Simulated assay, not measured.
Amino acid sequence: MIASPLAKVYEAYSAVADGRVEMKEDEAYVTSSDYTKKYTVRFLENTYSSNDNATIWQHYAGYPIIAVALMQGKVAIRKEILSYFKDVNWKQLNTKYKNNYQEAITAFFKEKQIHEDTQNMIEQVMEETFEEFCELSFVIKGNRAKKIMIEDGV
């Protein structure tokens, strides 16, 4: 499996902070940061699959899988920093910066007006979360569940 970019941990934290992860018995639905799509993450023992583009096309765990791992407690959530990740439209940032994830993260810190000391602490937590996730022995696969498109006002 290819390692996920660190930026996907930031996106996963936002999904958790916004309550965009709906857990079921053997699958979860993760709503995108722009609220236009709902991804299906399926899990059974140590196998996880998702129908987000990163997982299907780039062959690494996209943020929906990381968000589910956070919700399941397989990776620790640092609740004290969740509020910084609320209401971040990562889709918009990633598009604006042409998927240069580091530029998108820099813009996130700037838009949220996060003080340098707090930024350093958040960056450290994201690194630790990333390392913890990478240490898990998962089988990651894409799935072909139909993406659920969310209409305005629904």
Rank of each mutant, 00 (worst) to 15 (best):
W90Q: 05
A67L: 02
C134S: 14
A54I: 12
Y60R: 00
T55A: 10
R78V: 10
F130D: 10
A12Q: 03
I56T: 15
E27C: 06
Y84I: 01
E128R: 08
N120R: 11
F109E: 09
K112F: 12
Q72M: 15
K112P: 05
N51G: 02
I56Q: 13
E25W: 01
A15W: 04
Q113P: 00
S49K: 11
T106A: 09
N99D: 12
Y60S: 00
K24N: 14
I122V: 13
Y97T: 09
A67G: 04
E111W: 02
Q119C: 10
Y60E: 00
A7S: 14
N46F: 07
I140L: 12
N89E: 02
A7R: 08
N143R: 15
K74W: 12
Y97N: 11
I66W: 07
I105W: 07
W57D: 15
Q102S: 13
E123Y: 14
K38E: 06
K146C: 00
L44P: 00
E128K: 08
N53C: 04
E151M: 07
R42S: 01
K24T: 08
V154F: 08
A145H: 13
T55G: 09
F138S: 06
S14M: 02
E25T: 06
L70D: 03
T118F: 00
V21T: 04
N100W: 08
D18C: 04
A69T: 14
F85C: 07
K110P: 12
A145C: 12
A67H: 02
T47G: 05
N53I: 04
A3E: 14
E127Y: 15
M121W: 11
Q92W: 06
K79H: 07
A104M: 06
I77D: 05
K91F: 05
A54M: 13
A12F: 03
Y29H: 07
L93T: 06
N94A: 14
N99F: 14
L6H: 02
S49L: 10
I66T: 09
G153M: 03
F43V: 08
Q72I: 09
A15Y: 04
A15F: 03
E127I: 15
N143L: 15
A67Y: 02
F108M: 04
S49H: 11
R144K: 05
P64Q: 13
H59Y: 14
E11M: 14
G19W: 00
Y35H: 15
G19P: 01
F108L: 02
E151C: 05
L82T: 00
G73V: 01
K147Y: 02
A7F: 08
R42V: 02
V88H: 10
D18S: 05
K74E: 15
T31V: 12
W57H: 14
I56H: 09
K74D: 13
N51P: 01
M121P: 02
I56E: 13
K96Y: 00
D18I: 01
M1E: 13
G19V: 03
Q113S: 09
V21Q: 02
M149D: 06
T106Y: 03
G142S: 08
P5Q: 10
T129M: 10
E103V: 00
